[in-house]
Amino acid sequence: MENMHETQFLVTPQGRRLAYHLTDGTAPAIVFLGGFKSDMAGTKAVFLEKWARDSGRAFLRFDYSGHGQSGGEFTDGAISDWFADACAAIGLLAGQVVLVGSSMGGWISLLVARQMPERIAGLVTIAAAPDFTEDSMWASFTDAQKAEVMAGQTALPSEYGAPYIITRRLIEDGRTQLVLREPLALPFPTRFLQGTADADVDMQVALRLLDHADGADMRLTLVDGADHRFSDDACLRLITQSVEDVLTAPS
């Protein structure tokens, strides 16, 4: 189900080469921000793109550096790099956008929203994982793993394929990008989606985010039995319904 359009590339202000697919249509454009070691060819991104095309809505999906078809090595990257990549990708678009952030993309989308709130027409997060390098990874590491990371890197098993290589830079850089430690204003329609059977992001993270953020129109939907992939037919429909919801919500 790859996009019929050719993959395009942009070079960020930092000199990184990013792959992206841009569908023309009405504004505000929908921007999909993927997860940690994920890519723009995933089920949710491609499904949303087809929905946007069918709706005549502008849509952008892209790969962070070190992910998918973009340049760079995954192990060279960190949250601040991928945040900068997202800002560069959004720079392709004029006017306001609706961000759809999945897992790590949820954290990235919150950073974007904090950096440029005037550009954001709405936000939808899917199993958002804000501050996961600190609150999930570092907090759960054994003393031996912490020592390994501080010496350079450690490997974490992944049910999605090869182990995740977690670098010292990823952990230390993550501490400079935390969003749950200081006020977080979301002054636009916001929908948080979370599965109750998510083994990667605990439901408590979604509840903490809802409690921590400040906005006049924020809602959290918990889906009983949904896992971290959040990509069965019912979950995909809920994502598009949530995007439609923020598009039509009073500003």
Results as ranks from 00 to 15, higher is better:
residue 8 Q to W: 04
residue 42 G to F: 04
residue 202 D to S: 15
residue 26 T to L: 05
residue 106 G to Q: 09
residue 193 L to E: 03
residue 69 Q to M: 09
residue 133 T to P: 06
residue 251 S to K: 12
residue 228 H to R: 06
residue 120 I to G: 02
residue 242 S to F: 06
residue 175 R to T: 06
residue 231 S to A: 13
residue 109 S to T: 10
residue 143 D to W: 01
residue 77 G to S: 14
residue 226 A to K: 01
residue 162 A to N: 11
residue 137 M to N: 14
residue 79 I to E: 02
residue 41 A to K: 13
residue 98 V to H: 12
residue 91 G to Q: 07
residue 120 I to S: 02
residue 222 L to G: 02
residue 5 H to F: 11
residue 194 Q to H: 10
residue 148 E to M: 10
residue 144 A to D: 15
residue 144 A to Y: 04
residue 58 A to I: 04
residue 23 T to S: 15
residue 65 S to E: 04
residue 112 V to K: 07
residue 77 G to N: 10
residue 152 G to S: 10
residue 239 I to Y: 05
residue 34 G to I: 06
residue 61 R to P: 09
residue 250 P to M: 01
residue 142 T to P: 03
residue 238 L to M: 09
residue 57 R to W: 01
residue 186 L to I: 08
residue 228 H to M: 01
residue 243 V to D: 11
residue 66 G to M: 08
residue 93 L to Q: 12
residue 183 P to S: 07
residue 145 Q to T: 02
residue 187 P to N: 08
residue 22 L to D: 11
residue 101 G to P: 09
residue 45 A to N: 07
residue 86 A to V: 08
residue 190 T to K: 09
residue 43 T to Y: 00
residue 218 M to L: 10
residue 171 I to F: 05
residue 251 S to N: 10
residue 61 R to Y: 12
residue 222 L to E: 13
residue 6 E to W: 03
residue 25 G to A: 06
residue 124 V to D: 12
residue 70 S to C: 04
residue 167 T to D: 11
residue 250 P to L: 00
residue 32 F to S: 12
residue 11 V to W: 01
residue 64 Y to T: 10
residue 242 S to A: 15
residue 104 M to E: 12
residue 77 G to M: 13
residue 41 A to R: 15
residue 127 A to W: 06
residue 225 G to Y: 00
residue 207 L to Q: 15
residue 62 F to H: 14
residue 63 D to A: 10
residue 151 A to C: 07
residue 55 S to T: 14
residue 5 H to L: 15
residue 191 R to E: 06
residue 198 D to W: 02
residue 147 A to W: 00
residue 120 I to F: 01
residue 205 V to S: 03
residue 241 Q to C: 06
residue 18 L to F: 07
residue 118 E to N: 08
residue 105 G to T: 13
residue 146 K to Y: 02
residue 13 P to M: 00
residue 114 R to G: 05
residue 246 V to S: 08
residue 199 A to G: 11
residue 23 T to G: 11
residue 153 Q to H: 15
residue 248 T to N: 10
residue 176 T to C: 09
residue 152 G to P: 12
residue 61 R to M: 11
residue 214 D to K: 01
residue 190 T to I: 08
residue 141 F to Q: 05
residue 162 A to D: 15
residue 3 N to L: 12
residue 244 E to A: 14
residue 199 A to R: 15
residue 143 D to L: 09
residue 33 L to S: 13
residue 223 V to P: 02
residue 218 M to E: 00
residue 127 A to Q: 07
residue 192 F to K: 02
residue 236 L to N: 03
residue 161 G to Q: 05
